[in-house]
Design a protein around this nucleic acid. Structure first.
Lengths: 190, 190
DNA sequence: GTCTATAGTGTGATAGAC
DNA sequence: GTCTATCACACTATAGAC
């Protein structure tokens, strides 16, 4: 018998709020079930395992991330602003009390030395979309230097996320300033 | 009753090789004991707990990192090269078959949402030394802009480390190129 | 006197049966 | 949805080897 959409939603919400804030392996399944108000049998019927739920939560998060990114791109006035829009989303996406502590994707990659295939696929997708979209956005700004600039910006984005793990507060403005310096001096990346 | 230095060494080596490559919580204490050829009682007498061993392993790693960094600085011909030397160490330090998968410090920070005090202290030290030393090295190169440049370079270093979690190979040259762009255009960070 | 070997305890997890 | 089997893990306790 199929599983109600509302049940899936509650499980995904609970996974999002608990697994990515406290850590996947640090969070027992029971707490996710309790938060979701769902019985174990339902979870295992819906997603097969804890990792299946994690993968599903990552996939949904990826969709939400891309949607938020698209909105920020749509709001930007020109090509340069569209390329830099990712740094606005990076902070806005994090808002709300129960968001990932640093990054759901990098955090999951960090927790699994050998991720099960279903997780590896989710992680690969996010990295691929990041690189591909940044390359497309960089193209009208720096032309043939787009791949190199996209790779550098991927590094800056990852760095901003990793800075959340360090003490003191990571100032979001730093990543944007670094990115602007790169966009305005792309010849340095040759 | 004291513990022999050679015993501590074997424990720290095993911790280094297992905890930071496979993950702390993913690695059972038993496997560390087996690798070290040490009995459980000895570990708990020496370090009190698994986290105590992790903290000690982080501390030793931090010392080794600073020593390697100092050597790279000493080899550099001028102030600019001394500031950028950190990126050489970043790759060399990783050599050997049994090194951390991405970064022992960021990895540990990622695994503990609320690190026990002994771990929090080790992590704080590493972040502080990174920022302080980069600021000191940046000072002769960019003068008053040193704090801003150091913060940006800390982000680039963290980004390079985080890129190891992404698929495909992280090309070390990218981080260095980004850093060089920042060092040569520090006014963009104002 | 420093450590090993081993057995054992308590806890809390995943998973699945009912 | 409850309830339970199974297991893995951190840690302890003891007895004796070198």
């Amino acid at each position: 018998m199929p599983i109600r959409d509302s049940t899936r939603l509650r499980l995904l919400d609970a996974a999002d709020e608990l697994l990515f804030t406290r850590g996947v392996s640090a969070t027992p399944v029971d707490r996710v079930l309790e938060r979701a108000g769902v019985s174990p049998a339902t979870l295992y019927r819906a997603y097969g395992s804890k990792e299946g739920l994690v993968a599903a939560a990552l996939d949904r998060r990826h969709q939400e991330w891309l949607a938020a990114w698209d909105e920020a791109i749509a709001r930007a006035p020109d090509d340069r602003a569209r390329l830099l829009a990712v740094f606005d989303v990076l902070e806005d996406f994090r808002m709300g009390p129960e968001r990932a502590r640093w990054c759901a994707f990098l955090g999951t990659a960090a927790e699994y030395a050998d991720p099960p295939p279903v997780l590896a696929a989710a992680l690969r997708q996010e990295s691929a979309s990041m690189r591909q979209r940044l390359t497309e956005l960089a193209s009208p700004v720096v032309g043939a230097r787009a791949p190199a600039l996209a790779e550098a910006l991927t590094l800056v984005v990852s760095g901003q996320l990793a800075m959340r793990l360090r003490d003191g507060r990571a100032r979001p403005a730093v990543a944007r300033a670094v990115a602007e310096a790169l966009v305005d001096h792309p010849e340095a990346l040759a």
